[in-house]
Amino acid sequence: KKKIKIYIENENGEKKTIEIEVEGDIDEIAKELAKKYNVKIVKIEP
């Protein structure tokens, strides 16, 4: 498992940072999160 930080922006332009532990393809997981929460991924840090 890797701990990563995902910087997101919602439709109101509010920026947030999510810190999660992931296993597998980080890009795939980030895309799923973006779709699920309707946010834009700004940056992903390993």
Results as ranks from 00 to 15, higher is better:
Glu23Ile: 12
Glu32Ile: 12
Lys15Asp: 05
Val42Gln: 04
Gly24Ala: 05
Asp27Gly: 09
Glu28Gly: 06
Ile20Asn: 00
Thr17Asp: 03
Asn10Tyr: 15
Lys40Ser: 08
Asp25Met: 04
Asp25Asn: 11
Asp25Ala: 05
Ile20Leu: 13
Glu9Lys: 07
Ile41Leu: 05
Asn38Ser: 06
Asn10Phe: 15
Lys43Leu: 11
Lys1Trp: 14
Lys15Pro: 08
Ala30His: 03
Glu45His: 05
Lys31Ile: 08
Glu21Met: 11
Ile4Arg: 03
Thr17Ile: 14
Asn10Ser: 12
Lys15Thr: 15
Ile41Tyr: 04
Tyr7Gly: 01
Lys36Thr: 06
Glu28Thr: 11
Ile6Glu: 00
Val22Lys: 02
Asp27Cys: 14
Glu21Phe: 13
Lys43Phe: 12
Glu32Ala: 14
Glu28Asn: 07
Ile8Glu: 00
Lys3Cys: 10
Lys2Tyr: 15
Glu28His: 08
Glu45Lys: 02
Ile4Phe: 15
Lys43Tyr: 12
Val22Ile: 11
Gly13Cys: 05
Lys3Asp: 01
Asp25Arg: 05
Ile41Trp: 06
Ile18Pro: 00
Glu11Arg: 13
Lys5Ile: 12
Lys35Leu: 10
Glu19Asn: 05
Lys5Met: 09
Thr17Met: 12
Ile44Gln: 01
Pro46Thr: 13
Ile6Trp: 03
Lys43Cys: 09
Ala30Gly: 03
Ile6Gly: 00
Tyr7Thr: 14
Pro46Val: 15
Ala34Trp: 06
Lys16Gly: 14
Asp27Lys: 06
Pro46Arg: 09
Ile6Tyr: 05
Ala34Asn: 02
Ile18Leu: 13
Tyr7Gln: 05
Glu45Asp: 04
Val42Ala: 03
Val42Thr: 06
Lys36Met: 09
Thr17Phe: 10
Lys40His: 09
Tyr37Gln: 03
Ile4Val: 13
Asn10Glu: 10
Glu9Ser: 06
Val42Asn: 04
Val39Arg: 00
Ile6Asp: 00
Thr17Lys: 04
Asn38Trp: 05
Val22Glu: 05
Ala30Glu: 03
Glu23Phe: 12
Glu32Asp: 08
Glu9Asp: 02
Asn12Ser: 10
Lys43Ala: 10
Glu32Tyr: 15
Val42Phe: 05
Ile20Gly: 00
Glu19Thr: 12
Ile29His: 04
Ile6Asn: 00
Glu32Phe: 14
Asn12Thr: 09
Glu32Gln: 12
Asn38Leu: 04
Val39Lys: 02
Lys36Cys: 14
Tyr37Phe: 09
Glu23Lys: 07
Ile4Glu: 00
Glu45Cys: 13
Ile4Asp: 00
Glu28Trp: 09
Leu33Ser: 00
Lys35Met: 08
Lys43Thr: 06
Ile18Glu: 01
Asn38Ile: 02
Lys3Pro: 05
Lys3Tyr: 14
Asp25Ile: 04
Asn12Arg: 12
Lys35Gly: 03
Glu19Phe: 10
Lys16Tyr: 15
Tyr37Leu: 13
Ile26Tyr: 08
Lys31Ser: 11
Ala34Thr: 05
Glu9Arg: 08
Lys40Tyr: 08
Glu32Gly: 07
Lys35Glu: 06
Ala34Lys: 07
Ile20Glu: 01
Glu45Met: 08
Ile4Met: 12
Lys43Gly: 10
Lys16Phe: 15
Lys16Ala: 14
Ile29Gly: 01
Ala34Gln: 06
Ile18Gly: 00
Glu11Val: 11
Asp27Thr: 10
Ile26Phe: 09
Asn10Ala: 12
Ile29Gln: 04
Asn12Pro: 01
Ile18Val: 06
Ile41Arg: 01
Lys1Ile: 12
Glu21Gly: 03
Ala34Pro: 00
Lys5Pro: 00
Ile6Leu: 11
Lys15Met: 15
Pro46Ile: 15
Lys16Glu: 09
Leu33Asn: 00
Ile41Asn: 01
Ile8Gln: 00
Tyr37Val: 02
Tyr7Arg: 04
Lys5Asp: 01
Glu32Lys: 12
Ile8Leu: 11
Ile26Ala: 06
Ala30Ile: 15
Glu28Val: 10
Lys5Tyr: 10
Pro46His: 13
Lys15Cys: 10
Lys5Trp: 13
Ile6Pro: 00
Glu9Ile: 15
Ile26Lys: 01
Gly13Met: 04
Gly24Asp: 04
Ile4Ser: 02
Lys16Leu: 15
Asn12Met: 12
Ile20Val: 09
Val39Gly: 14
Glu23Gln: 09
Lys1Gly: 08
Lys5Phe: 11
Ala34Phe: 06
Glu9Pro: 01
Lys5Thr: 12
Glu23Ala: 09
Ala34Met: 09
Lys3Trp: 15
Tyr7Ile: 09
Ile4Leu: 11
Val39Asp: 01
Ile26Pro: 08
Glu21Trp: 15
Ile18Ser: 00
Ile20Thr: 03
Tyr7His: 08
Lys2Gly: 08
Asn12Val: 10
Ile44Arg: 01
Val42Glu: 04
Leu33Arg: 00
Val42Cys: 12
Ile29Val: 09
Glu23Leu: 09
Glu19Ser: 07
Asn12Leu: 13
Gly24Glu: 03
Glu28Phe: 08
Asp27Tyr: 14
Glu19Cys: 11
